[in-house]
Write a protein that binds this DNA or RNA. Structure first.
Lengths: 319, 319
DNA sequence: TAAAAATACTCCATAGGTATTTTAT
DNA sequence: ATAAAATACCTATGGAGTATTTTTA
């Protein structure tokens, strides 16, 4: 068994009141009567409390054979640490109250590479501005990990694309806040790159680079579904996990891909982006968090509020 | 008025017991029943104490809608500082008790240059060995300052030569612990330097360098008295405050001096020391401290003990 | 002698115990 | 169904008040 940090049973023999009263007496210049007045109690109880403290300590804190009273060396030693202790206690109380009001605290945000690429910076900036004392911890995780860590209380809020097979989970809450569309990514020297809009059907014979089902389930299934609707099954040349890899493969001429429109912010030499003609599917980006037993944390609440605000301001991203 | 370090009236609304119990619950893995057992109380009172703490804080510390219970973020924040607070409190209690037993603490020792030159190192070394956790602060002060600071509680123990005109002070206590003798300091090329023992009468026509009455009253009066007893009044060429100056003046041939035998440990080029023939006066070195209203501090008590021990061991210095 | 702390005594607020109910898994 | 926390109620310890005595300067 690990050694106890603090022997609480021993400490329970003492009383905060005793210690506060002791500090008050010292602050009043070792004057019991004056301290009693400031504490709004009578002098005798104050004397009694100090006595009881001294008895509990088995230590004389004041030398009473002189007026004004003086601290004994032991009293001086006690004063120094006790005053630190009360400072920490005061901070403990303050912090607890601030956290419970969402004014300070920590929020662990799960992000998966590329998702919410568009609004995340705005959201973070706005939140930081409004709650400068809240520490935002970013964790870059795949969707799977994100949800696992969320259930482990290692992540407080994350972002996912919808549809998503976790959507039905009763312990998670989803807030869709952003419309997203897909676009076509091509090698820059591809013969279709000349057009600014490309119908999906034109890709029927093209090899596809496709993000893995595991890491981007929404993108994977959407790609398959869209192609099916356009009358063909995509020919998969290569699967890849990271967006960076996907873009490299495209630049290398391995194939084309359907990607979230937010990748437009990612400029990769050798890759061009083109809109899909006709079909402009509505994918959604949602924030998600534990819909647990506990009350939703104030910090999280404010964060969701900021997401909603930023989303409504930035309708420009919602093409 | 300076801002209060701690708002004791506010803190008095809380109870150490509540906080200790809270820590105990956390240490027991957020399990009230287990914590109650370890605290040797029943579970209901424990629940009540935690409730009362939460009420006083206006903060929920535990989320009770799940088993096992979990700390809320506010509870986590409270835990961190509260645990520090209790650590300090434990240290406060320990330190007070250690100081009251003389096992740790601080002792401010007044020394005046040269006095107790002989035994001081031994005393300090022995004391440090025996009480390594007691901080010894040395303050180099003239006799006058020493006594003033002692009365101001800025010095705990000092050293003086006897006789001393403070000897009758009722608020001071003297412990003579070392016999001291005088010797004659001469320029090395002085015609008397050839003898190893010099009768005082031989100095009747010599100019004297003499430490000032103010800084070394004992030495001053003894010099005058000894010369008178030898049948002459010393011819004072120069007064000087510091022993270093006195030796410089002697080396420069300004005069001779009667000095405490402990200056033998001080080798000054151009100065030689010779014993006084016949008369070997018993001067004494005494430790002194406040004989105040308070009980003598345990640390001081141990220090005096060490002085006595070292003095009796080192009778070699008592020539 | 005057100011301040200690002591004696009373009252009541509240911590802890016991029995029971409620809640979460 | 079971383990664990909350609730209800009772008892008694001890903190605060009032009156008084003791101590220090």
């Amino acid at each position: 068994m690990c050694p106890k940090v603090v022997d609480v049973r021993y400490l329970s023999n003492f009383e905060l009141r005793q210690i506060c009263y002791f500090l008050a007496v010292v602050e009043a210049g070792n004057n019991f009567s004056k301290a009693a007045e400031q504490l709004d109690i009578e002098q005798p109880p104050l004397s009694q409390r100090i006595r009881s403290l001294e008895k509990a300590l088995s230590v004389e804190l004041f030398n009473r054979r002189t007026r004004p009273l003086r601290l004994t060396p032991a009293g001086q030693a006690f004063l120094e640490e006790a005053s630190l202790a009360l400072n920490h206690l005061e901070r403990a109380i303050d912090n607890a109250q601030l956290v419970s009001r969402g004014e300070i605290g920590r929020l662990i945000v799960g992000i998966n590479s590329g998702i919410a690429n568009s609004l995340l910076p705005d959201i973070l900036r706005t939140f930081r501005q409004r709650f400068p004392k809240v520490e935002l911890v970013l964790r870059e995780l795949t969707g799977e990990q994100q949800i696992q860590e969320m259930r482990n209380y290692q992540v407080d809020v994350g972002f996912e694309h919808l549809p998503n097979h976790y959507e039905q989970a009763t312990d998670l809450c989803f807030l869709p806040f952003l419309q997203d569309s897909l676009l076509i990514a091509l090698p820059e020297n591809h013969h279709l790159a000349a057009q600014s809009q490309i119908p999906l059907e034109a890709l029927a014979q093209e090899p596809f680079v496709i993000p893995s089902l595991k890491n981007a389930p929404s993108l994977y299934t959407e790609t398959i579904n869209l192609c099916k609707n356009a009358g063909f099954l995509p020919q998969i040349a290569q699967e890849a996990t990271w967006m960076i890899t996907v873009l490299s493969l495209i630049a290398g001429g391995i194939g084309v891909a359907l990607l979230s429109s937010n990748v437009r912010t990612l400029h990769r030499a050798g890759v061009v982006y083109r809109n899909i003609q006709g079909a402009n599917l509505n994918r959604q980006i949602a924030a998600l968090w534990r819909q647990g037993d506990e009350n939703i944390s104030p910090v999280l609440c404010e964060f969701l509020q900021v997401i909603a605000e930023v989303a409504s301001e930035n309708s420009k991203y919602n093409l």
